[in-house]
Amino acid sequence: MVSAVTVITTTDRISAVLAHVPDPEIPAVSVLDLGIVRDVSETRVLITPTYTGCPATLAIEQSIRQALDANGYANVAIETTLSPPWSTDWISDAGREKLRAYGIAPPPKGASASALKNNQAAECPQCGSSNTEELSRFGSTPCKALWRCKACLEPFDRFKCH
């Protein structure tokens, strides 16, 4: 019998802090869920912006800074990288479920490379129907498109495949 010993490292603790930093535009999901955090070490957190013009980018960095400082990691630096560019494929499964529960149709996993990525019918986050239509490819934030369910007639946001 080998008994497993769980070692909680500093990077685990920093990741746990990040798991509670919400996205400023969609507070239902954390910066970890969205795949914004690319790497965590004992000395730095590496993040990447979602869209180049997303006004939340600065707010996200400030929220992470505050959370790190408040939990005793003031010496951990935040660095930003553009490459490789952020993709919706990096949104975690838990993040996708949180988006759906929040009323935003999540992007299908692994679909960002597909030519059909934003043409496939989105599933209505309210009633689950696939009988939906796109109203506007651009929505209330850079990451969302505006859709409508033809079954329950509710409009909803769709997180764009990116």
């Binding site: 869209y51 553009l82 506007s136 490819r137």
Partner: peptide
């Protein structure tokens, strides 16, 4: 129209983001 307003300003935001970089 509202959808067009959203589209053009979203494109504007992308362009300003690229300009920043």
């Amino acid at each position: 129209a509202l959808e067009v307003d959203l589209s053009l300003t979203n494109v504007a935001l992308d362009q300003v983001g690229q300009a920043t970089h």
